[in-house]
Amino acid sequence: MQKFAGKIFARATAVRSIATRFVADERGATSIEYGMIAGLISIAIAATLLAIGGTLRDDFYGLALEGLQSIFSGSGSTD
């Protein structure tokens, strides 16, 4: 029985050692921080595009419509 308890104690000590090293390890922290920054920038870009997307679409469609109307009405320049 004492041999069995010794094995359990050894495993508990090993697990504790592994957990302590895992918590103290900061090698991947910078990568995670850069990933979070990239994610926040992506969210900001998506929110901006959603906010001004309709206005941009209307402006580009308006310009395209004006260009097509000038081409088909014959008033377009032939430089």
Rank of each mutant, 00 (worst) to 15 (best):
I45Y: 11
K3H: 08
G67H: 13
Y34C: 07
T13W: 03
A5D: 13
I37D: 10
T20M: 05
V23Y: 02
F72I: 14
G6M: 01
D59F: 15
R21T: 06
A64H: 12
G76C: 08
T30G: 04
G35Q: 00
F72K: 09
A46C: 10
T20H: 05
E26S: 04
L50I: 13
L63D: 02
I32F: 05
I52H: 01
G62H: 05
S42C: 11
A44E: 00
A64T: 13
T78R: 15
A12R: 13
I52E: 02
L63G: 04
D59Q: 14
A10P: 00
I18E: 06
Q69R: 14
A51R: 05
F60R: 08
F60M: 12
G6P: 03
T20L: 06
V23F: 01
L65D: 15
E26H: 03
S73M: 08
T13H: 03
I32M: 04
A38D: 09
E33I: 07
A29H: 07
A12S: 12
R21I: 00
S31I: 08
S42M: 11
S77C: 04
L68E: 12
M36F: 07
I52N: 02
F72C: 01
R21Y: 01
G54S: 01
I43T: 15
I8H: 09
I37A: 09
L65C: 11
G62R: 05
F22T: 06
I41D: 12
I8C: 10
L56E: 03
I32W: 00
D79K: 06
G39M: 02
S17Q: 07
G67V: 14
G28K: 02
T78N: 12
I18V: 05
L65E: 14
A24E: 01
A46R: 13
G54W: 01
L40V: 12
S42N: 11
S70G: 10
S31E: 06
F9E: 15
A64G: 11
G62W: 06
A51S: 08
R27W: 00
I45G: 08
S70E: 14
A44M: 04
R57F: 13
R11W: 12
S70V: 08
S17K: 03
A44S: 08
T55Q: 05
I41Q: 14
L63C: 02
I8M: 11
I71Y: 15
M36E: 09
F22A: 09
Y61N: 15
R57D: 07
F4C: 12
G76S: 12
I8Q: 07
R21E: 04
G39Q: 06
L68D: 13
A51K: 01
